[in-house]
Design a protein around this nucleic acid. Structure first.
Length: 360
RNA sequence: GGUUAAGUUUUUAGGCC
């Protein structure tokens, strides 16, 4: 049985949830009855691919087979719902646990919080956080201590919902209110919120404060890239560039995301020609521009009415083995229209339709 | 005793409000 359980886990981690379920089903025919771990491993396998319906039906099967699900069974199923964006189902599983006498632990709450974050349900996330924080006082020894994962997910819920101020408030108060030291991911979740809101100045200040602070925290590439992204909507090209150079100097090499962010800030700021130079710069640094890089560059061409350059970039893309997506077409068509090349625009529209892609 | 569960995709058009 241990071998079966291990095999189910391996299939799950490899993304083969179907194989994992197959193994679970064939166990009885070999005279091996699945135990809770077998089911949990299978539920987890579904979770890796966000197969929430399979996960929940396995949970029901677990009950029917006379076994008793535990925190891990529910936690795995909640995680599956979370990945599928089914926050309602995740929350009802959490409540179901309570009604069948299981006490959710901090990991279970973390999975549920993640579901709320994915659904951008910031108010519900705050309520859930309050529920966990209130717990030790109400129940004494069996209480749950909130941790940085829980806070990180709660901050992410606020950030995704455009409530960056609320997220920052959580970040600033978590230590004093719950004794939890903010982790790098908590900072990054807050920075993400500033990127969503285009709060470039705030994001730059927060990155700076991470270096200084009473307890210092090294920003990583996610931190810098979010701050660079925050400079995008305001077209703060110089500031974005300064962040890119700053990360390099501090030993975090800029990556494709960093360059893409700086390019985008340049386009928004009206410096379309500078954006095109940055594409060359990233190549010269040994980085491989991705589809988004080219999309931003082609968008720069549209802003600058450079239809010929746009066509050349499409050529470069296919030479680099990259496939044009809907954004690429939209920007390229716009570049041709703005540049006055109707013929090229029409042929791109036709190509788009031939590929079965929607023409918004 | 062992095997199973949670947080940072960060970059690109338009539309809607």
């Amino acid at each position: 049985r241990a071998a079966y359980n291990a095999a189910i886990t391996v299939c799950g981690k490899a993304g083969r949830w179907d194989r994992a379920l197959g193994l679970l089903e064939e166990m009885p025919s070999y005279g091996i009855m699945p135990d809770v771990v077998s089911y949990n491993s299978a539920i987890s396998a579904c979770g890796h691919k966000a197969k929430w319906d399979r996960a929940t039906s396995l949970l029901a099967e677990l009950w029917l087979s006379g076994l008793k699900p535990d925190c891990i069974s529910y936690g795995s199923a909640i995680h599956a719902c979370s990945g599928a964006g089914r926050w309602e189902e995740a929350m009802s599983l959490l409540r179901e646990m309570e009604s069948v006498g299981l006490r959710p632990n901090v990991v279970t709450y973390g999975a549920a919080m993640s579901a709320l974050a994915n659904g951008k349900k910031w108010k519900l996330a705050l309520e859930l956080l309050d529920e966990v924080c209130a717990d030790p006082k109400n129940t004494g020894s069996g209480g749950i201590q909130p941790n940085a994962v829980l806070y990180g997910a709660a901050i992410r819920a606020c950030s995704g919902a455009g409530q960056w101020r609320v997220g920052v408030e959580l970040l600033e108060n978590m230590h004093s209110s719950s004794g939890v030291t903010p982790s790098l991911m908590c900072f990054n979740a807050a920075l993400h919120g500033m990127a969503v809101a285009g709060e470039g100045k705030r994001a730059r200040d927060l990155v700076e404060s991470m270096h200084k602070g009473p307890r210092t925290m090294r920003p990583d590439s996610y931190s810098y890239n979010s701050a660079i992204a925050a400079c995008g909507p305001g077209g703060e090209a110089e500031e974005a560039r300064a962040l890119l150079e700053g990360m390099r100097q501090r030993g975090t090499p800029p990556d494709v995301f960093s360059y893409n962010g700086v390019m985008h800030a340049n386009v928004v700021g009206g410096s379309w020609a500078a954006a095109l130079e940055i594409l060359e710069e990233m190549k010269s640094k040994g980085l491989k521009p991705d589809v988004a890089s080219y999309n931003i560059a082609v968008h720069a061409c549209a802003v600058g009415c450079q239809w010929q350059m746009a066509i050349d970039l499409l050529e470069d893309m296919s030479e680099a083995g990259l496939t044009m997506d809907a954004f690429t077409y939209a920007h390229a068509i716009e570049a041709c229209c703005n540049g006055g090349n109707r013929v090229a625009a029409v042929s791109l529209v036709r190509e788009l339709r031939d590929r079965g892609m929607p023409l918004r």
